[in-house]
């Protein structure tokens, strides 16, 4: 269970990107987070595995506080949090298998990592997961020889190799074509239920958010302004989150306010 209480993140002296956010994710639900660029979605996800340092607040994973962890404690917690990125973030010059096994780096010794001598159990797990997502025959190919959808599958398997207690996905389909992105969303959805894993997905595509997730969280200006099931996510909610076309005076002031933290939040 993930429990976020009163999370605040401020970059430098700017307006906070996250303004006292509360979020609770239980069981193996797939939660999509929607919101305009600069709403703080990426920052929220990155605060959970501490790629971004939260300014204040509390993030608890299965009762275990993540904020303020340091050094090896932080690394041990990160092992339990899988992450999938928009740009896949694979290591291009390594093989698919090496990329997949890199998900175990938090568990093996430096020498094992250097000599690529991973425990047999890791290799078995890698093959069974790769077979599950249909990339096992690419094991010895270099990662940069794969197509976008295949690369994202490698990234998903890498995250699952960590034996995570939660999976974070930061716009996992934004670099993919419509058909491939549906496949990846479907994959994330079914993997979540197979492994009873909670999944948090930042997503721009509202249709896909409705189709593939159990719950939608809408963010605007660092605050949660919608939280509910896809069937309740109506036009009003959409307008509230994306600003709507009907409120020009609001549109005039807001983008400027959000423009400065936006590049940092997605960096």
């Amino acid at each position: 269970m993930l429990e976020i209480t009163n999370l605040v993140k401020r970059y430098g002296q700017n307006d906070p990107v996250l303004k006292g956010l509360n979020l609770k994710v239980e069981g193996s639900s797939v939660v999509s987070i929607v919101g305009a660029s600069g709403a703080g979605k990426s920052t929220l996800l990155r605060c959970i595995n501490r790629l971004v340092e939260p300014t204040s607040g509390s993030i608890k994973l299965n009762g275990h506080e993540l904020v303020n962890l340091r050094g090896s404690e932080l690394r041990h917690s990160r092992r339990r949090i899988g992450m999938v990125f928009q740009g896949f973030n694979l290591i291009d010059r390594l093989t698919v298998m090496e990329n997949v096994l890199s998900g175990r780096l938090g568990y093996v010794s430096f020498f094992q990592a250097l000599t690529r001598r991973f425990p047999q159990s890791d290799i078995d797990r890698a093959f069974s997961l790769m077979e599950r997502v249909g990339i096992a025959h690419y094991a010895d190919k270099r990662a940069d020889q794969l197509s976008g959808g295949e690369r994202q599958r490698v990234a998903v398997v890498r995250a699952l190799m960590q034996e995570p207690q939660i999976l974070l996905a930061d716009e996992p389909t934004a670099s993919l074509d419509p058909k491939t992105s549906q496949q990846i969303m479907g994959l994330l959805q079914s993997l979540a239920s197979e492994m009873s894993l909670p999944v948090l997905i930042n997503i721009h595509n509202v249709t896909q958010a409705r189709m593939y997730t159990d719950r939608i969280v809408g963010m605007r200006h660092g605050q949660m302004i919608f939280d509910g099931e896809p069937k309740d996510f109506n036009q009003d909610a959409l307008d509230a989150i994306y600003g709507g076309i009907e409120s020009p005076e609001e549109d005039g002031g807001d983008p400027e306010q959000q423009a400065s933290p936006a590049p940092e939040a997605t960096a």
Partner: peptide, 11 residues
């Protein structure tokens, strides 16, 4: 990739 490796909990 650096970010991704950090996220796995690697030293």
């Amino acid at each position: 990739p650096v970010e991704a490796m950090e996220a796995t909990g690697a030293s």
